[in-house]
């Protein structure tokens, strides 16, 4: 499902003395099946964009295209439920949204709101609990008896149970330890590939954006200032610096090495494995040349 923001502007508390503009003429097209990262500092407008992606906020100017629905500023938008079912959002610290007596009831809350039968929703819950790496016995427990990491997984299962076509992730690994972080990010990558999801990752981690995304958009002071592939975005450190952003550690390392040895490696590398391979190749060339 394609998502398109056309000259979207948004102002909080519009028409009051406390009005605050958060987005200015944002143009962003997210094609179906892509893994899009939206990067920016706190306050850059990335969480305001996030809330537009399933019409929790409606643009105060411009238009928003979500699949075949168009939401235009100033016009009433009725019945947004189909949009919300198709675009699932995993909010930052999603464990804060748990409320039911049991994990099972919490997971089926979403799908049942969208008219899925209890039987079908329960079936989904059983499949998903395994997918997020938790035992089936946990379904009967109270979510409030679980550890923080387990609660996060339950909340994620609750969003996945709606079977969205687009999944929006807001700093999904905040506060997790390194292992938890990697497991969660790998889980979303697997889902992205297997279910052909459109994945939108809102983050301030350059590392995650470089490793997982195939398209990147940079937000700065309420504007979408740069879009492109990870190679295009991270290859241009000077441009990034003007938005007070740094290239990922891997890219910075590659650049330092290149400066030291006085030549460029073949490609811009985005993972440690790629970088190790490129350096090895350069070392071999060097030996052969001697």
């Amino acid at each position: 499902m394609d998502i398109q923001l056309q000259k979207v502007s948004y102002a909080y508390a519009k028409g009051t003395p406390f009005e605050k503009r958060a987005l200015f003429d944002v143009e962003l097209a997210i094609p179906s099946g892509s893994y899009q990262a939206i990067i920016g500092h706190t306050g850059s407008g990335k969480s305001t964009i996030l809330q537009h992606l399933n019409a929790l906020l409606k643009p105060t100017e411009g238009a928003l295209q979500i699949g075949d629905r168009t939401i235009t500023a100033g016009k009433k938008a009725k019945d947004l439920k189909p949009v919300r079912q198709k675009v699932g959002i995993v909010f930052q610290f999603p464990e804060h949204q748990l409320f039911e007596e049991t994990v099972l009831k919490d997971i089926i809350f979403g799908p049942m709101n969208f008219g899925v039968s209890e039987q079908e929703a329960t079936k989904r819950a059983h499949k998903l609990i395994e997918l997020v790496g938790l035992p089936h016995t946990i379904l009967e427990k109270s979510p409030f008896d679980l550890s923080g990491g387990q609660m996060r997984r339950v909340a994620i299962a609750g969003v996945l149970a709606m079977e969205p076509e687009v999944i929006v992730l807001d700093e999904p690994t905040a506060g997790l330890d390194p292992r938890g972080r990697k497991e969660i990010m790998d889980l979303f990558l697997q889902l992205h590939k297997e279910r052909n999801l459109t994945t939108i990752l809102v983050t301030h981690s350059m590392e995650d954006a470089a490793r997982y995304a195939d398209r990147i958009a940079i937000m700065h002071e309420g504007k979408c200032v740069l879009t492109g592939s990870p190679e295009e975005i991270f290859g241009n450190a000077e441009k990034l610096a003007t938005y007070r952003l740094e290239a990922p550690r891997i890219v910075r390392f590659q650049r330092e090495l290149e400066a030291k040895i006085g030549r460029r490696l073949q490609t811009l590398c985005l993972t440690e494995e790629e970088l190790a391979r490129a350096i090895t190749a350069a070392v071999r060339e060097e030996r052969a040349g001697q």
């Binding site: 439920k81 909010f91 949204q97 979403g110």
Partner: peptide, 16 residues
């Protein structure tokens, strides 16, 4: 802020 966040999270899960 918290109320707003939780409300939006539940709305995203189809609560109305």
């Amino acid at each position: 802020d918290e109320t707003d966040k939780i409300m939006k999270a539940q709305m995203a899960r189809g609560s109305d």
